[in-house]
Design a protein around this nucleic acid. Structure first.
Lengths: 242, 242
DNA sequence: CGGAGCCTTGAGATTTATCAAGGGTAGTGG
DNA sequence: CCACTACCCTTGATAAATCTCAAGGCTCCG
């Protein structure tokens, strides 16, 4: 099994004992969610803080008439809703794209931990900050980038995030999203996503088949997508080098 | 002068003494920013936490090639960047739309205050939560709503937010955004914004001229925009009734 | 009076969506 | 092992939404 590494552990110089504490918190309660089922449904009152141990998911939201928008991708190590205890009910859902393993943490246990341990508090802080920054980049993407640019950007983001958690084999990584998922994330039609993906293939920038994405020319793909990884704040993470 | 009311004061049952404390924090250091100038520039290292006392601003971001996206509107009472001390440099800017009065708060003073006072901490928490929720709604808007729907939604959001801070006179409110600003916020072209605004006028849903917006038929406008105010979490604020 | 900034309008191009159909593939049950 | 189904990807033709370019008008202010 791949090393389990929460995103928290990438955000601050945690000591061995910090990690053990977090690890034990994470191991207490696991939940398995089948592909295409909800981890947290829209409107549901959140009871736990969910940490993705394995599998891919997404945060999503529906308009009143049923149109669906993916708000963020959740990859292994991601913390779903650090601050959501305040909420009566969530205004969005979290869905599993692949089968997922989720660690459920008691909110109180985590806040206690953060209270006692400034390094962990800081890591949580950072986690929020990065997801907020990523949300902002998605707004810019949806507002300003063309279809081709959005898709290129999405591929770049995924590549960088997977690399950070050690789930990239050079230019190759897993890619379990369907083109319909990509459409929901980019605000495009599945048909149009398909055409743009084919363009990127034709230009020898990527290969995509099965559930595998290969980035043939990352610098070029980044240029096509006007992608700069700064919003992921990889530079301020400990694992930036891996 | 209009009552100064920070957004914080709408998020928790603050006592008179809490308010005095916040008030004194806010009164210590004021800054005036001319219209169309930056409050915080992109890439700048933030030194203070900025609270909007008066005037309208926006959070914005540029793509590498210069395209500009407005990420959020900043109205009186809004806290610009509660958590940004962690950052070396911001990945976005904050610009003044009208002349603005900004209170600059020392980050340390605020965190100390939050540490000592759980009600204020809770209010800060809420503030973050609402802006995050609003960001999510903007993602959904840009991804899924048509031009007409986005513009209707923007008008509705502004109306509700202004009403909350007591800056609506019935259906009438100030609206200092140019159509180019609306274009940057909705990811559209100024020309197209113009046409959609005219449609909404023609349908007797709004009036917009000078710097004044009148919503002639709010329920209908909300329906056109598929707008539901829940993401603003007005229901959980103290001032929901005003 | 002259600018500058903003709004408005028209014509035509481009991007993206819609509708419809066919093909591949993996898993399932007989 | 084969047939079948379900899900996904692909393609084409056409329509709709949005953008681009260009020009003119209005209003406010110096």
């Amino acid at each position: 099994m791949l090393e389990r590494k929460t995103r928290l552990q990438t955000y601050a110089e945690l000591t061995a004992s910090d990690r053990t504490t977090i690890q034990s918190l994470i191991e207490q309660r696991h939940r398995f969610v089948a592909a295409r089922r909800d981890v947290v449904s829209e409107g549901q009152a959140p009871r736990y803080i969910n940490v993705v141990i394995d599998g891919w998911g997404c945060r999503y939201k529906h308009l009143p008439d049923g149109r669906r928008q993916v708000l963020a991708l959740m990859l292994p190590g991601d913390l779903c809703d650090a601050n959501v205890q305040v909420l009566r009910r969530t205004d969005h859902g979290i869905g599993a794209i692949t089968p997922m393993t989720i660690a459920e943490i008691m909110p109180d246990a985590l806040s206690e931990l953060a209270f006692d341990n400034p390094r962990i508090a800081r890591a949580l802080w950072w986690n929020d900050h990065v997801s907020s920054s990523t949300q902002r980049e998605w707004i810019a993407s949806l507002g300003q980038r063309s279809a081709r640019e959005r898709i290129a950007t999405l591929f770049c983001e995924i590549h960088h995030r997977l690399k950070l958690i050690g789930r990239c084999d050079g230019p190759v990584c897993e890619f379990p999203l369907t083109q319909a998922d990509v459409a929901d994330a980019t605000g495009l039609t599945p048909v149009h996503v398909n055409r743009m993906v084919q363009d990127l293939r034709r230009d020898r920038l990527i290969e995509l088949s099965g559930r595998t994405l290969t980035i043939l020319d990352l610098p070029q793909l980044q240029e096509v997508g006007l992608f700069t990884p700064s919003y992921l704040h990889l530079d301020q993470t400990i694992l930036a080098e891996c």
